[in-house]
Simulated assay, not measured.
Amino acid sequence: MSDTAGAGAGTGAGAWGFTDDRGTTLTAGRRPERVVAYVRAGAALLDLGVRPVAVYGSGHDGELLDPVKAGGLAAAEVPYLGPGRALGDSAVARIRELGGADLVVDVTYDGKSPYALDEAFAERLGAPLVALSVGSELSLPGIVARFGELAGALGAAGTGAADAEAADVAEAAVRAAAGRGAVHVLALSGAGPEQVHLARPHAWPELARLAELGVRFVDPGPGPGANWLTTDWEYAVGLGSDLVLFDSRVNAVPPHRVPAGARLAPWNPETPPSAVAYARFFEDVAGALEAGV
């Protein structure tokens, strides 16, 4: 996954600086060492060599860490604080018990606001907030590169050659599998027995990257919604896909109906933005495509 990264980190003599994807430049007298992060961002930073002090969820998350979104966080015993916008005094106290925080890392989909946390909570911690884009305005390689820049600014060595090679191998496997047969793929998130959200592939950087590699996605068609078309299962079945990538997060429900003969494969729309995490997902997609050739 190679791409030109956006404007990012810089350090001066005895100082630390980083410009996030809202265009906000943060400076400090020393490099931050204690990071509290949104689960997705924290899992990516962990892959890149930065272990968060603690992580929090989004409005979709509950009081327990979603294992699908967690990456290596549970194995690394990183504490989970609960949904970000519900955090209050007890979370502040917990973070202070853990030694405090000097940086909060969230994601942004609109380039303006942090996704999972009220910025006022970071202010209560006395820590600046960095928000990195995971929306469609950046390519998948660009998103991964930005997280690599932040990890580097926080003192990590960055993505190793082995991780980069794994990503390249996984992409090559997808390209080869996609080229061996016309497998039509539909990505969706179940909302219940009567409703389903169908992904617009161009709006999801990992799906857009898969399409660049030759994966044939089914277009949900016109209608409201920039990222999803919300409809019923009968409509989804009528689109006639061969492979269904279903949202495997805890807040989503399993597919209620799929086209006859279609296969299922899990998709985490919040895969940690690291080369190694996307390599695992792309390997799974390649295998699912091969099974249908």
Rank of each mutant, 00 (worst) to 15 (best):
G238A: 12
R175W: 01
G221R: 10
G240K: 07
A172N: 15
G160T: 13
E206I: 03
L150Y: 13
G225I: 05
H197K: 08
A176S: 11
L188I: 03
E165K: 10
A157W: 08
L150T: 02
V183M: 06
A226T: 06
N227Y: 12
A157S: 07
S248Q: 12
G225T: 04
A151P: 06
T231K: 13
G192H: 04
T230V: 12
W233V: 03
A164C: 03
D219Y: 10
A156N: 00
G223Y: 09
L207K: 05
H197W: 15
L213S: 00
V237R: 14
G155N: 13
R249H: 12
L154R: 09
V250N: 05
V183Q: 03
P201V: 05
T230N: 00
P205C: 01
D242W: 06
G160W: 06
V196D: 14
G221L: 09
Q195T: 02
P205E: 07
R209D: 14
T231H: 13
T159C: 08
P201N: 05
H184V: 10
A173V: 00
G221A: 07
V237E: 10
A211S: 03
L213H: 04
E171I: 04
G158M: 10
R180E: 14
A191F: 09
W204M: 15
G155P: 09
E194D: 14
A191T: 14
N227T: 09
P222H: 04
G152P: 03
A156R: 10
L207V: 03
D232C: 10
